[in-house]
């Protein structure tokens, strides 16, 4: 199983905004059943999807040279649950970026019938792993943007970073 909570990137404005979608399927094992008997996608995994969306935006803005790690979820609110058959759209906006890290505002949208409606916000802070120290431990490999992310980028029509040894 790939630890990927995005199905496709639908829109990228480099260094500004990235939108990605995730279809929720009844076949997925991560769904949990509420006391009312409704299978829903766990909020924690919706937040993970938002973090992956925002992390890709930050990584792309830095040419995928940085090891971008989620450091802090500043705020997360979700007002509705995502049930099978729904599509989630994660919209990440880059608010700050410097050599140490970046922050993003995120909005989660849900399409249950015909149109997407916002159902929550997730604001996130990322840190860039210190080059000198991380190269010592991990070498030149950017373990953050591995094969799964490169496949996702390719399928979405975005040039992925080169694989490192």
């Amino acid at each position: 199983m790939r630890w990927l909570w995005i199905d496709r990137i639908v829109d990228l404005a480099a260094g500004e905004r990235l939108r990605a979608i995730k279809h929720v399927s009844l076949a997925e094992e991560h769904l949990f059943v509420t006391p009312a008997g409704v299978p829903v996608m766990p909020a924690s995994l919706i937040i993970e999807g938002m973090a992956q969306t925002a992390g890709l935006l930050v990584g792309h803005a830095g040419g995928f040279r940085e090891k971008v790690l989620l450091a802090k979820i500043q705020r997360a609110t979700l007002d509705r649950e995502a049930t099978p058959g729904c599509t989630l759209m994660y919209e990440a906006t880059l608010t700050r970026m410097d050599p140490q890290g970046a922050s993003c505002n995120g909005t989660v949208h849900l399409r249950a019938d015909d149109e997407f409606v916002p159902i929550g916000t997730v604001d996130l802070l990322f840190t860039h792993l210190d080059h000198a120290r991380s190269d010592e431990v991990f070498g030149n490999t950017n373990f953050v943007f591995g094969e799964s992310f490169r496949t996702l980028l390719r399928l979405s029509g975005i040039e992925p970073p080169e694989a490192t040894a």
Binding site: A71, K72, Q74, T95, R96, D98, P99, Q100, G101, S103, L125, T127
Partner: peptide
């Protein structure tokens, strides 16, 4: 330690100035 970066970013946003490393 990570809160220091968060605080720096938020101060930049609120006051509209750039804080160098």
């Amino acid at each position: 330690s990570i809160d220091f970066l968060d605080i720096k970013f938020q101060l930049e946003q609120v006051f509209g100035f750039k804080i160098e490393d």
